[in-house]
């Protein structure tokens, strides 16, 4: 049993669109650092993140967030504790970078009041952290895919929550942008002490950057723990039906998967 977990998931069951996603899923996510959720397509990792974010209600079972039942939190309260970034954010070409990032302040604002000093500070530091300070007045339609991804991340940062949930933040980015985004997340976890939970596709990148990994398959927890424990030939076979060797990266000392097929 994990002591003092960030999320404690107890016996979660959920049916969506005629498919049983989870049937008694249990697990725990640690407080602090970077936690990665990995697994094959359709294993229920995005849905797990939606449940943790409180935007999807499970049919039964419960999620305990830092000791409190998640379902008992009002939407606005919840939004002050955790930010959630869904996969494939929509195109909003009309908006400016700063305009979109300012939406992250919604849970903290009162109706018909202009942005407060705290709001401006949070927006500024979110823009600075994502390297977008010079692009604040640019329209979203004029940005590249990597920049746009950073704007959405800045929105989540401006929400100023101790917990951030990200659904495939590196999707559609090329390798160097994937790396710089993950380095940024690592930095946010280390320097600002935020807990970041994200769904990732790439096992090797997940192993290199995350402190803790959860491997899912068919709505079941296959493996959990630090990268060295979670990524082994046995777990890769159990997760993906793939024969693979696992060896440590010569530079970072983290596990790398070498498929044998």
């Amino acid at each position: 049993m994990m002591t003092n977990p960030l999320f404690d998931i107890e016996n979660l069951s959920l049916r969506l669109g005629g498919r049983q996603i989870y049937d008694g899923f249990s697990g725990a996510l640690p407080n602090g650092g970077l936690t990665g959720i990995v697994g094959p397509n359709g294993c229920g990792k995005s849905t797990l993140l939606r449940c943790l974010a409180g935007v999807q209600q499970p049919d039964s079972g419960r999620i305990v967030f830092q000791g409190y039942p998640l379902a008992g939190l009002a939407a606005v309260e919840r939004a002050q504790f955790m930010a959630y970034l869904p996969q494939n954010p929509p195109l909003v070409p009309d908006m400016s970078v700063a305009g979109l990032v300012a939406k992250g302040r919604t849970p903290w604002r009162k109706a018909f009041r202009p942005l407060s000093g705290t709001d401006h500070d949070a927006i500024e530091s979110a823009l600075a952290a994502t390297g977008l300070s010079d692009l604040r007045t640019t329209r979203l339609s004029a940005l590249s895919g990597g920049q746009r991804q950073r704007v959405w991340l800045a929105l989540a940062l401006a929400q100023d929550t101790p917990v951030i949930l990200l659904d495939e933040p590196t999707a559609f980015l090329d390798l160097q942008h994937q790396l710089s985004l993950l380095r940024l997340l690592r930095q946010l976890a280390d320097e600002q002490g935020r807990s970041i939970v994200m769904v990732l596709h790439e096992l090797t990148l997940a192993g290199r950057f995350c402190d803790h990994l959860l491997g899912l398959r068919d709505g079941r927890l296959v493996c959990a723990g630090p990268a060295e424990q979670a990524i082994t030939p046995q777990t890769v076979a159990a997760l993906y039906d793939l024969q693979a060797d696992v060896a440590n990266d010569p530079i970072f000392g983290k596990p790398v998967v070498f498929p044998r097929e």
Partner: peptide, 23 residues
């Protein structure tokens, strides 16, 4: 008028709106 900002948030996506505290 009170509905405008809420509705504008929905154009960012239903989940995004929900995670910003607006069901």
């Amino acid at each position: 008028i009170f509905l405008c900002n809420r509705l504008a948030l929905l154009t960012l996506g239903a989940d995004q709106s929900h995670s910003l505290g607006r069901n």
